[in-house]
């Protein structure tokens, strides 16, 4: 691309026009959703890291289109000794809380920007399930005696 300093005035004005036009193309719906995102600001949440997302595996889209039944998407979040595995199977989310430090009752909360929180108890093995989950941004909060973990937001 040409350095802006090498463009003459008319060329620079043409690029400016494209830049300004892009600004006008923003929908109010997206602007409002983006502004509202700020209400999710939490200062001291213990954020987990998204360690792996099978959707980003090399060639994931190509492979799955070759096999109609394609393997469900899996997401792996980690913080310290805690691992949270999520499998997206249609509108069901199947998950597992793995705690290297030992087992115990855990509550998993599904948060969506436009819906009330939903919570379930993980079973003795750490498994849990949410049904009827619509596509869109989501994150999970796992709480257990002594700790809680919040995942980053992801579009599911």
């Amino acid at each position: 691309m040409t350095d802006p300093n090498e463009l003459n005035d008319d060329e620079l004005m043409a690029e400016l026009a494209a830049a300004v036009e892009e600004e006008a193309a923003v929908s109010d719906r997206r602007r409002n959703a983006a502004r509202m995102a700020f209400t999710w600001r939490t200062v001291d949440a213990e954020l987990a890291e998204l360690l792996h997302d099978s959707a980003l595996d090399a060639g994931a889209a190509v492979r799955s289109s070759g096999s109609p039944s394609g393997a469900p998407r899996t997401l792996t979040f980690v913080r310290g000794a805690i691992t949270l595995e999520i499998e997206v199977d249609g509108d069901a989310l199947l998950g597992e809380v793995v705690d290297d430090a030992g087992a115990g009752p855990a509550t998993v909360t599904l948060q969506r920007p436009d819906a009330d929180d939903r919570s379930v108890e993980a079973d003795a093995s750490g498994f849990f399930r949410f049904d009827g989950v619509e596509p869109g941004p989501a994150r999970f909060v796992v709480t257990r005696e002594g700790w809680s973990l919040t995942t980053p937001w992801a579009t599911i």
Partner: peptide, 20 residues
Amino acid sequence: EADGDDVSQTVWLRLVEHLG
């Protein structure tokens, strides 16, 4: 359009938590 809305919202939600 719907997926675009979702991606946009996710990006801003992630930025909220990334600000720190």
